[in-house]
Design a protein around this nucleic acid. Structure first.
Lengths: 108, 108
DNA sequence: GGCATGGCTGAACAGATCTTCAACTGTTCA
DNA sequence: TGAACAGTTGAAGATCTGTTCAGCCATGCC
């Protein structure tokens, strides 16, 4: 039994940083808003009911961490999830919470 | 094409809260320390080189969120990851960062 | 009971974080 | 060129968070 790979301190910090980026509800909503398809900044702001400025501040962090990637088209900037692993992990987590919630509703 | 399940605001907040708990390096190390097998508080403190008080403070949050579960044996209290989904997600993430790191080392 | 061990808790403080507001850059179209 | 639209940025402030320190509860053994 080798067990799972041991990861070093630097990698724990890196991993924690990824979680930190997804740990704010507003920021998580932004990530989820462009999980399936690229979304423009104003579009997200409208959908989430927050200012474009706030969206942009959060996007800066997500861009810096290479979690999202920007793509300018005319005067709009579209954002999409860059890290495939994060995307599939988030999909799983979304499915999971949806599932747990459905169970709770039917009296699980 | 139905797409993935839509999750509501409450569930986003819930999900963000889970990520928040894993977003602090110290707390993440604590979770990882009892990922494969239950670990006692003092044991973790020693292994991580931090005070038992600090470990205990973090454990309180993790317990409250039902991420970890406590099990007293004599004077020691052993903690283990309670949520199976979180455990497997974390295993995946650990594998992922270990992989990415290995690739980087070999010049990927 | 008394003591040692292992763990928990509350207060306090430094540092980080989220949000808002105002001002700025870049792009399109007339 | 100028105006309007889309997004970005920096400063400021209230709030939250991680850590330390001191003291407290619980268990096991003499």
């Amino acid at each position: 039994m080798r067990g799972r790979p041991r990861i070093g301190d630097d990698q724990v910090v890196e991993l924690a940083e990824m979680f930190r980026l997804m740990s704010d509800p507003t920021r998580l909503r932004i990530i989820l808003a462009c999980l399936d398809a690229p979304a423009a900044v104003g579009e997200m702001a409208d959908r989430l009911g927050i200012s474009a400025s706030l969206v942009s501040h959060h996007l800066r962090l997500l861009r810096a961490a290479r979690l999202l990637q920007a793509d300018r088209r005319g005067r709009q900037v579209f954002y999409a999830v860059q890290d495939e692993h994060i995307r599939s992990m988030l999909s799983d987590m979304v499915d999971h919470v949806a599932e747990v919630d459905a169970e709770a509703e039917t009296g699980g």
